[in-house]
Nucleic acid binder design. Structure first.
Lengths: 129, 129
DNA sequence: GTAATTGCAAATAATTTGCTGGGTG
DNA sequence: CACCCAGCAAATTATTTGCAATTAC
């Protein structure tokens, strides 16, 4: 890919990361922008995007996207899974003790597996009632 | 599985579906557009998008998207898995005998699971050499 | 001090949509 | 022959980028 470029820590970048860490939801860039402005009123949307990009490259956050519209971001970089409610659109985190990935997957894959992603779609418990 | 609403069949829609079925790659809307024009020179990109949308709703095709850029489409609607090469960007299909989804997933999920998606990222066999 | 980063705004990229005439069922 | 769908282009939406001023190290 590309050589790692020297990064600097700025107030803007810290706030973007902070905002993302402070929520269990999976916000869009625009939501992060609006939250960040509460702390740095002059921050620009472009800066939010640039810092999200930087944090992604550093592996500090995750990007999620489900077909349409904006990307969503997740401040939890640990391996975990997502459940997307097809009714209300909410994205839930969930964890499992044993990993989903198995030797069978590693064998069947047409290359060296370095990472994976597992997502479920359905109706969340709140929408089931 | 039966589709809720029957859509009208047109030459354009047939060609879009055909093009998508004819390849094992996972093309973008634009690539499909360019291929389709070989058969219907006057077809428009908007029509390609509209038909892809229709085929998606009918469950005939899958939409894939990996962070950046355009969506990719898959003419194979059967449950299968994808391997994305981080080097060359190619998307491979792969199948497994036993399903990845387990009782543990169903129990851990915060709702009723209706569908799921599993993807691996890594370096493909061609790029490993 | 110097080079990365910011804010701003304009530029891109991808996809969607309004309109009107045409083809399908 | 009613109505859905195609073509065309303009509109939207999400994200990226160029530039000059600012700031971190």
């Amino acid at each position: 890919m590309r050589e790692a470029k020297q990064k600097r820590m700025t107030r803007q970048k810290a706030v973007v990361h902070e905002v993302l860490q402070s929520t269990t939801s999976h916000p869009t860039a625009d939501w992060i922008y609006r939250e960040a402005r509460k702390q740095i009123p002059g921050i620009s949307l472009g800066t939010v995007y640039r810092n999200l990009q930087a944090l992604l490259e550093e592996g500090q956050i995750m990007e999620l996207n489900y077909g349409k519209g904006q990307s969503r971001f997740d401040g939890n970089a640990e391996q975990h899974y997502h459940f997307v409610c097809e009714k209300c659109g909410k994205v839930y985190d969930f964890a499992m003790d044993s990993p989903t990935i198995s030797q069978e997957v590693l064998d069947a894959a047409p290359g060296l597996v370095k990472d994976y992603r597992f997502e479920c779609y359905g109706i969340c418990k709140d929408c089931l009632d």
